[in-house]
Design a protein around this nucleic acid. Structure first.
Lengths: 227, 227
DNA sequence: AATAAGTATTAGGCAACCCTAACTATAAAA
DNA sequence: TTTTATAGTTAGGGTTGCCTAATACTTATT
């Protein structure tokens, strides 16, 4: 439970690095992510870099060191394991898990996290479809891609979402799209990029491009053009 | 997760009040309990009393207000529910539960604590035999008494321990005394107050007065003199 | 009553985190 | 190129939570 702030900074930096690939991570980006002001970030960066968790300069931005990355991955690991546990063992739904996990991720008791990981059967993905790194910090491989990059005829399985907001997750539940559901792509409207899906019950579901950009899928059609 | 320090102060004060009944709670006692120095306590007391969680003056010592007591009981409730959960659902033993619970007790997600309490079947006692207050803050009744106040012939069931230290709990396990075990009292040595117990397998276990002072029991012999 | 011992308090400091205000680069736009 | 934003930085502040040193009380003990 010590160093909750360190945890949060390192996690935020890690996330930023991975979301905006190739772009560099700046103090202002971190400030926005953590809902604080840039000077606070600057100050903390000094402390974190003094402890060799990262380096920072204007040219290359903030770069996590090996140790810094390990800590961040560990926080993410704990977060996702808890989310999975809350979902599978305590009946929390898609949109409820995040908040509780946000606190639980800071509990550093190793035996505890090992135990619930084991009880869950060493899962590779959390209830949002996000990969759970193993104890060595290695993420599982998967051929996930954005729904919006799929083609007519793709046989899809929903493997994850990019946005975790309550409203988004609730919307998905409402239109009957849930993790591990299977769909085929019926039609893609050129005009606005919206997609018509067909589910197992032969019902049709219409999805806007905006939504399709936030859903991760795996295409199970052999040799599909989409890959 | 906010106000972890407030939680810890209020919990410490509550515990002190209840352990040293009738005695008044002083700043130095709190400092010792929390492993900090008296001036830190004095300072915090100002803040807590400004927020009406307690009152303090030299004559009556530190006295929790209704709200203060509620918060303390809630922390204790969360702690004991987690301990029970770790023990029953995650296979932690007697001496392992405390440390993890010390962090988990600060996670304030109500749905989470309600859920695990429910999954456990609304238990009334934790793995150390300590009572778990219900959601309204009411502790369950029980006729527990110290083993050291028992008499020859008592038919006892172990319902709790007063000390939670690792070494103590490990010792009890080693000499084969565990929660809910049943014993009868075979002999009491006047000279040093040590007690000879007989277990269900007719094995004898010798216990010093010091140990007997830290074990809570319930006597199941009808109309026993010990009450 | 005088000394010793321990408790309560005040004063003054330090570190962690966060903030606003103000200044400096830097990059985009006019 | 000059203006205008925007991002980065520094300076200076506030709060919380903890500390040491010094002082003021109390309470035993001699």
């Amino acid at each position: 439970m010590n160093n909750i702030t360190d945890d949060n900074y390192l996690k935020a930096i890690y996330h930023l690095k991975n979301s905006e690939k190739n772009k560099l991570v700046t103090p202002t980006m971190v400030a926005n992510e953590l809902l604080i002001k840039p000077p606070s970030v600057l100050e903390k960066l000094k402390s974190l870099s003094a402890r060799k968790y990262l380096t920072y300069n204007k040219e290359s931005g903030i770069i996590l060191s090996k140790t810094g990355k390990e800590i961040a991955i560990n926080v993410i690991r704990r977060h996702r394991i808890w989310e999975t546990y809350l979902h599978k063992h305590l009946g929390f739904n898609w949109s409820e898990v995040h908040e509780a996990a946000e606190d639980l991720e800071h509990v550093r008791n190793e035996k505890l996290i090992d135990k619930i990981y084991e009880v869950l059967g060493n899962p590779e993905f959390d209830p949002h479809g996000d990969p759970i790194p193993n104890k060595q910090g290695v993420f599982p491989k998967s051929e996930r891609k954005l729904l919006s990059t799929s083609l007519v005829g793709c046989k899809l399985i929903i493997v994850g979402v990019i946005e975790h907001s309550d409203s988004f997750l609730k919307y998905l539940s409402e239109i009957n799209i849930n993790l591990n559901d299977k769909f085929s792509i019926q039609k893609i409207i050129e005009y606005d990029g919206s997609i018509q899906l067909k589910n197992k019950k032969n019902e049709f579901i219409q999805i806007s491009k905006l939504i399709a950009d936030k859903i991760m899928v795996r295409c199970e059609k052999v040799n599909c053009e989409c890959k």
